[in-house]
């Protein structure tokens, strides 16, 4: 019998982090290398290797055209963990709650112009469908991402999209009370499905939702569809609202943009990491080129209908391009 090896010595942290010289942060301790399904590329799941879900993950995650040999090295630039996410968003929600409370006390909705109600029904309250599509798309990226640090960013993003949807739902009810005849809370689905102002976004989002390759799903959602929605439905709609004395909507969209900025930060960090690998630039550019024409059509149809703004569509598209330019994809 050979001599037994020396017992392993205790470590100051997880063995997978122990090689780092730095003491790991709380973020690293609780966020890194958590997906066991990436350990065996041939069989992500501990079942028959030919099961449908094995094939799905092999094809759309492991064999994605977006490649990196160590996605686990990705770090969220905000180093957000569950605990801090709730601290941040509870604070943000207190802010929105106090806005809703104060503006309601002041009779804000009673002072709105009658014509503005029609604008809101057409261009604002149907946004719950768009936000929900972003929520669903974020959940797809979360379940397909090849590392837990990416998954977590997409998970918090899913929560944020539900947050935006919730604001819209809340305001929809308030508006229906202020103007019962307009059709708030009743006509949104019909408008989302039929009004030409929404069909571009509907097409963009439906097609984004069926991008199964995780890299394509990420790019379509986080680099194109989401920024396009944000520039049009948060930035430009907010601007139009302020121009039409709907101060409350302007403030809510500003609060939501805080989330959007965080999402763009992690997306940009992921792109930066991806660009260290040959071939990924062309892959990402390809995805952007595929979805941008749809985004352009969507933004033009929607933003040109916003009252009180001259160049809303151009500005919204410029906002998306500014984001793209910072990604160094040219």
């Amino acid at each position: 019998m050979t001599e037994a090896p020396e017992p392993l010595k205790p470590l100051k942290t997880w063995s997978h982090l122990a090689a780092n010289r730095r003491r790991p942060s709380e973020y690293e301790i609780v966020s890194t290398n958590l997906h066991y399904s990436t350990d065996n590329p041939d069989a992500p799941w501990e079942l028959d290797p030919n099961l449908h879900m094995q094939k799905w993950y092999r094809k759309y995650r492991n064999e994605s055209t977006l490649k990196h040999e160590d996605w686990n090295a990705f770090r969220d630039p905000h180093a957000q963990v569950y605990r801090t996410y709730n601290l941040l968003q509870d604070g943000q929600e207190q802010h929105v709650k106090s806005l809703l409370d104060q503006f309601s006390d002041r009779g804000h909705d009673q002072l709105l112009d009658a014509g503005w109600f029609d604008v809101l029904l057409k261009l604002y309250t149907p946004s719950r469908y768009a936000f929900h599509a972003l929520q669903m798309g974020s959940a797809y990226v979360a379940q397909m991402a090849p590392s837990s640090t990416i998954t977590n960013c997409a998970t918090f993003q899913t929560g944020d999209c539900l947050r935006w949807l919730s604001h819209t739902a809340y305001r929809t009810r308030e508006l229906s009370m202020a103007s019962p005849a307009t059709g708030f809370g009743e006509k949104e689905r019909q408008i989302w499905e039929n009004d030409p102002v929404w069909q571009g976004f509907r097409e963009l989002l439906e097609k984004t939702l069926v991008a199964w390759d995780w890299g394509e799903a990420f790019a379509a959602l986080n680099l194109v569809a989401k920024p396009a929605v944000e520039e049009a439905l948060l930035e430009q709609l907010g601007k139009s609202a302020r121009a039409n004395d709907d101060t409350l909507l302007g403030l809510i969209t500003q609060a939501q943009m805080q989330d959007a900025k965080r999402h763009r930060d992690w997306a940009a960090a992921l792109v930066k990491m991806a660009l260290t690998v040959d071939g990924n630039k062309a892959v990402l550019k390809g995805h952007i080129d595929k979805y941008m024409p749809l985004a352009q059509k969507a933004v033009e149809a929607y933003a040109s209908a916003l009252p009180g703004l001259d160049n809303a569509a151009e500005e919204a598209l410029a906002g998306v391009r500014t984001f793209h330019n910072a990604l160094d994809l040219a």
């Binding site: 719950r128 739902a169 308030e174 689905r189 509907r202 097409e203 069926v210």
Partner: peptide, 24 residues
């Protein structure tokens, strides 16, 4: 305080199914 109760607006947060058109 004039905030809505949860039940006043909760259902709208889950009125989110639509009929897809550009994909089946």
């Amino acid at each position: 305080m004039t905030l809505l109760k949860r039940e006043d607006w909760y259902d709208l947060t889950r009125a989110t199914n639509w009929t897809p058109k550009y994909v089946s």
